[in-house]
Design a protein around this nucleic acid. Structure first.
Lengths: 235, 235
DNA sequence: TGAAGTTCCTATGTATACATAGAATCGGTG
DNA sequence: CACCGATTCTATGTATACATAGGAACTTCA
């Protein structure tokens, strides 16, 4: 009972990934990258046709995006990508501070020296990365992700990690706004380095305060970037 | 501009509520009340028949429960109500502390005296409620909810409120374990009162610390109750 | 020309039929 | 008796057809 595959082998891992998962990832990525701008409408039939799945899995994908807070439903008028007001950015950073300060504190208490030693070495070289063009920049952001992952692993708390993941989802949308500021990135690297050193020293109080400072600076930079864009929309 | 309702008033809001919403609320309530015990299996066909909706809306309901963390999917073996280990309770309280301390701090900074004055008056009388049987007990828990709502309103931060809502969802499952302890409830009322007074005084530091103490005591009580139940399953 | 009523259209909500993967079971064989 | 295999069964994943509500636009009347 042999089966003949008429599809080309290049299809690869297409079958195992569910259609709803594909739709979710694609829509989520497009929203985070700004391809689907805030306020943009999402119609089931339209999007299902575009992505190449039927309405049922697409509907499941949109349901997940709604619970992520990336999409909102308007009764009778379809769905839309949620807006990110300046106020909501402030609110987001407020929660982020509460969670990340706590995470940093815990990481300092339950520290895994090996991981953070390695991270320290990487962050010491971070300023150099920023002078190596797009590739270095990309590596820099990868490093931030590794730092976040190390923090997640250190806290060993699924609830906290989950809450942080939700916050970071929205941050990914914001980050695009202020990412073209080399001076800020250099300063951010130094701030991360201080947090890492505090964790390595087991100084939970310093880790929390350094995190607070870092997030304050980050928010300040983002808000300034928004002001700049608002004053100079063409830039 | 009078409107004539041809439907019987007893029908109420039955038509406008979506089937997926009904299924979600019923399942969520049953999980929170313990009718659907941790580890219990949820089959789409079975549950959809029981609740009286088709598989599609039931599926949407389960998807929401999964994102709430109340249900987990086992590949090929259906879905099950998530377990609540002692460790996960500790982890939950850790996040709760971070969020509620922050919320209390903000509430003290942006306080709305009228609301918290009223709450204070209610909590002063709370010990009396505890001597009035089930009705008083019910009123007591209602009071806690009003306190939570007042905190939510005070922080004016949808992200923080949302994160707290997620935490409180799981707390509702835990609360059943330790709710039969009058002494603890009396102490808890006093702890709430202190938080309220700190907020009224605009003492954000005290509000945060009092919240920390309250949650520490609450967790201690819950863990003791679990130990007791484990040692005396019949009780 | 403006406003109100109606009609049509569109978009989601729901139900059901079909495809498929994984698990448990039962049988055969060493 | 144990282990390996195939088979069957079950449960989800997907597609599509139908129901319905709400909005927008058009028409008609004043």
């Amino acid at each position: 009972m042999s089966v003949v595959y008429t599809e080309t082998p290049t299809a690869g891992v297409a079958p195992p990934v569910r259609a709803s998962e594909r739709a979710y990832r694609q829509l989520r990525g497009e929203i985070l990258d700004g391809l689907l701008a805030p306020g943009a409408g999402l119609l089931e039939v339209e999007q299902s046709a575009r992505i190449g799945v039927s309405r049922t899995p697409l509907r499941a994908a949109i349901a997940r995006l709604i619970s992520d807070g990336l999409v909102a439903g308007r009764p009778g008028r379809g769905f839309m990508v949620t807006e990110m007001s300046v106020d909501s950015i402030r609110e987001l950073y407020e929660v982020r501070r509460a969670l990340e300060e706590h995470a940093a504190r815990i990481a300092a208490e339950r520290r895994d020296p090996a991981v953070f030693e390695a991270l320290r070495a990487q962050f010491v070289q971070a300023p150099g990365l920023l002078e190596r063009g797009p590739a270095g920049l990309s590596r820099y952001y990868e490093l931030i992700t590794e730092f976040d992952d190390a923090l997640d692993a250190a806290v060993m708390n699924p609830f906290l990690v989950g809450a942080l993941a939700g916050v970071r989802t929205h941050l990914a949308r914001i980050r695009r706004l202020g990412r073209d500021n080399p001076g800020r990135l250099r300063a951010a690297a130094a701030e991360h380095l201080l947090i890492i050193e505090a964790i390595l020293a087991g100084d939970s109080s310093l880790a929390a305060h350094a995190t607070h400072v870092h997030l304050h600076q980050s928010l300040t930079n983002v808000l300034a970037a928004i002001q700049g864009h608002a004053a100079d929309p063409a830039g």
